[in-house]
Amino acid sequence: MLPDERRRQILALLNSSEVLRPADMAVQLDVSPETIRRDLVLLEREGAIRRVYGGAAKAKNLSRSAEPGRVERENIEREAKAEIAEVVASIVGDDDTVFLDVGTTVLAAARALPESFRGRVVTNNLGAVLAMAGRDAVNLHLVGGRVRHDELTCSGPDAEDQVSNFFADKAFLGSGGVHATGGLTDYHLDEIAVRRRMISNAAEVYVLADGSKLGHVALRKVCELDRITALITDSSADPEMVAQLRDAGLTVVQPAVAGAEDAAS
C-alpha cells in the first residue's frame, strides 16, 4: 500500500472514531505501529490530525484545497528546513551562479549560504534578496515581474524572460509535492513557468522538500523526476517514501546519510 493511500485510510478510520490508538490502526491496516506513528507525525504536521493522550483524533476545520500561507509555512518544519539548508550550504561552490526559487525552504537555504560564498544569485524571491542584502561579496540579481504580495515573489512573462537570460551552475527549487510517478508539482502556474526556465538553464537542479511533501501531488505539474539532479530532504522523511523515489531513479540526499547516498546513487 502506498503511503498516501495508507494515510487516507487513517483519516477514514478517524472519521468514524473520536480517538484511535496507533496499535489499533496498525492492526486494521496490517502495518507496524512504528509505520503508523510516522504517518501520524506527518499528518499532524499537515494539520490533518492532532495527537492526543492515548492516540490520535481528526483535526477540525481541515482544508487542503490550497497551499498554507507564507508566514504559516515559515513556522512549519523549522528543524527540517534547517537540515535541508545545511545540505545546500555544503554543496554550493564559493563562485557558483545559482538560481534560488520561491518558497520558505529555499529562503532558509538562502539564509544558510556560507560566508565564503561570493558567487552570483539570480532569484525571484524577495525574501532571499533581503536575507542576503548585507552581503557585499554576493552578486545579487532580483528577477522582476508581477509581485505576489502574500508571498513576496515575482512571476509572469517579465520574470520568465529575465531568467532565460541567465545560466546557472545550480538551481535550488521549492515544491508543493514530489511523487514517484507524479513528478515535481506545485500550486501557482506563473511561478511554475519561471521554475521551468530555471530548470532549463541550470547545469544541476536540486529540489528542496521536507518529508511532508514526499508522496504528495500538488495542483499542477512542474516536471518529471528525470529533470532533477537530486532531491534534498530532511532526516525524518518516511523511509518507504524515500525508497519509492529512489526506485523511480531519483537521487535523494538526507543530512544524516548524505555521504552514503551520494556513493549509493
Rank of each mutant, 00 (worst) to 15 (best):
L2Y: 09
Q9V: 09
Q9E: 15
I10G: 00
L13V: 10
L14C: 08
L14K: 00
N15K: 04
S16M: 13
S17R: 07
L20F: 10
A23N: 04
M25E: 08
A26F: 07
D30L: 08
E34F: 09
E34D: 10
E34N: 08
T35I: 09
L40Y: 03
L42I: 13
L43H: 08
G47I: 13
A48V: 10
A48G: 10
I49P: 05
R51Q: 11
V52A: 05
G54V: 01
A57R: 00
K58L: 15
A59N: 01
N61F: 10
N61H: 12
R64Q: 14
S65K: 06
P68Q: 01
P68E: 01
P68A: 06
P68M: 03
G69K: 03
R70N: 08
V71Y: 11
V71Q: 13
V71C: 13
R73I: 12
E74Q: 08
N75D: 11
I76C: 09
I76S: 09
R78K: 12
A80G: 03
A80K: 00
A80P: 03
A85P: 00
A85N: 01
V87P: 02
A89H: 00
D94L: 13
T97N: 02
F99C: 02
D101Y: 04
A109T: 12
A109R: 02
A110P: 08
R111Q: 15
R111P: 15
R111A: 11
R111T: 15
L113P: 07
P114V: 11
S116Y: 06
F117H: 02
R118E: 13
V121C: 06
V121F: 14
V122D: 07
V122S: 06
L126D: 04
V129Q: 04
L130G: 10
G134T: 02
G144N: 14
G145S: 07
R146S: 11
H149V: 15
H149R: 14
D150N: 11
E151L: 15
L152C: 12
T153A: 03
C154V: 15
C154S: 10
G156Y: 12
A159Y: 09
A159S: 01
E160D: 12
D161I: 15
Q162T: 15
V163L: 13
N165A: 15
F167N: 12
A171Q: 02
F172K: 00
G174Y: 03
G174A: 02
S175R: 02
A180S: 12
T181S: 14
G183R: 01
T185G: 05
H188P: 07
L189C: 05
D190W: 06
D190F: 14
R195F: 11
R195T: 14
R197H: 11
I199Q: 06
I199A: 03
S200W: 09
S200H: 12
A203Q: 14
A203I: 09
L208A: 04
A209C: 00
A209Y: 07
G211Y: 02
S212A: 05
K221N: 06
K221D: 08
E224I: 14
L225N: 04
D226H: 13
D226F: 08
I228R: 00
I228W: 00
I228P: 10
L231R: 01
I232F: 07
I232T: 05
S236N: 12
D238C: 12
M241K: 02
A243W: 15
L245A: 03
A248E: 13
A248S: 08
A248W: 04
V253A: 07
A256W: 11
A256C: 14
V257G: 04
A258L: 10
E261T: 05
D262P: 06
D262T: 10
A264P: 01
